[in-house]
Design a protein around this nucleic acid. Sequence first.
DNA 1: AAATACTTGTTGCATTTGCAACACTTTACA
DNA 2: TGTAAAGTGTTGCAAATGCAACAAGTATTT
Lengths: 211, 211
Amino acid sequence: MINLFDNISEKEMLKLKKILKSNSQIFKKNVNVLSNVNRDDFIALIEYGSIELIYTDYEGSKTVIEELSAGEVFGTLTSSIKNEEISCFTKEDTKITFIEYDQITNDDIIKTDFYIIFIKNLIKILTEQLNTRNIRIELLTKKTTRDKLLSYFKYIDKKTGGGSKTIKLPLSYTELASYLSVDRSAMTREITSLKNEGFIKTKGRKITLLY
Amino acid sequence: MINLFDNISEKEMLKLKKILKSNSQIFKKNVNVLSNVNRDDFIALIEYGSIELIYTDYEGSKTVIEELSAGEVFGTLTSSIKNEEISCFTKEDTKITFIEYDQITNDDIIKTDFYIIFIKNLIKILTEQLNTRNIRIELLTKKTTRDKLLSYFKYIDKKTGGGSKTIKLPLSYTELASYLSVDRSAMTREITSLKNEGFIKTKGRKITLLY
DNA sequence: AAATACTTGTTGCATTTGCAACACTTTACA
DNA sequence: TGTAAAGTGTTGCAAATGCAACAAGTATTT
């Protein structure tokens, strides 16, 4: 996973943050980060901690769009935060650096050596997020829970190198059900069937793929 | 919807394309655009015509990820095209301009006046695509076909200005079923129920929202 | 260390959904 | 223009899924 300041030294990074007129804030656990934030276009970088982006629809029902942790980025570029349909809650004590989007092309920064690196990092981050979304869409369009699970396991396997055939789930089963948008109990039922039919073996969150 | 060359004059655009060493190709209908394309990082701009991005999973089953038309952009930045799981077919005669990603930071272009405009356009495009994906994820995570439909209609209403209460579907019902990942006949059944229960009225692809 | 909050597995039952098959209409194109 | 292809509406039936409720296990917090 790429970081906004990859290939930029610590020293340059501090300089860059200053030129960008960035502003850092520390939030306690379970706090709505965007409640008093100016919703002009901005980029938010998680320095430490983690957050959840939550979408609330016209009926008031909520969906977790994404969970992000240290080093990751969110903001008006990656979610339609402006429309106030998206809220952002800390999952633990979290420090966030805010950068106004317009600043990324201010006169001072354009003159720096590392401007192009910074921009390329930003583009790369957006690209990675797009791929993340594409994969989730691909999983969500599967017709059955079984297909969702088998495809998800393959995806994790591939992402973590592939070949080993034993994967470790990066989420709890409860979170996985939510990610795949299936009822948790129905999902557990399906996992039990997959075990009985010899597709997988499980031990806690470790899953051995036999297909 | 933003275009890669928005706020850049025709003349500058031609200059820019030259500096970027871009390469244009015309494809007939129903052709696999990426079959002989170098899959290094690239940006593809649809000059005219339209295409479909199709994902093929490990089992060989296919999902349409996106349909794109004139002015829109795809490429390794917006989909994991490199892994060859994604193919791209023309839906009609289509002209595409390819730009190698590394060229967007070549020495000549950085010196031009419109470089920052170009980069901002590119970032904006990626951002819009992310929002498009977020919305689809939001719809796909709805538990019932009814919720998917009602939310989708609201979304189209909002996207096209809102308020009028009569929307025109931008896709066929068959395509909509695929987009929402539900069985077409089951979806039609649900639409019929929605009509009977007074949530909507329909006339072809025109739908009046009464909720 | 106890209390409280989350996670996981299980099951019966009602509901929703997908599937298959068909008729009819509309659109594309040779 | 006539034929093929694609889109739409409908229905019965089987299968998959969501829901509710509960028990037991793990983590967290104070």
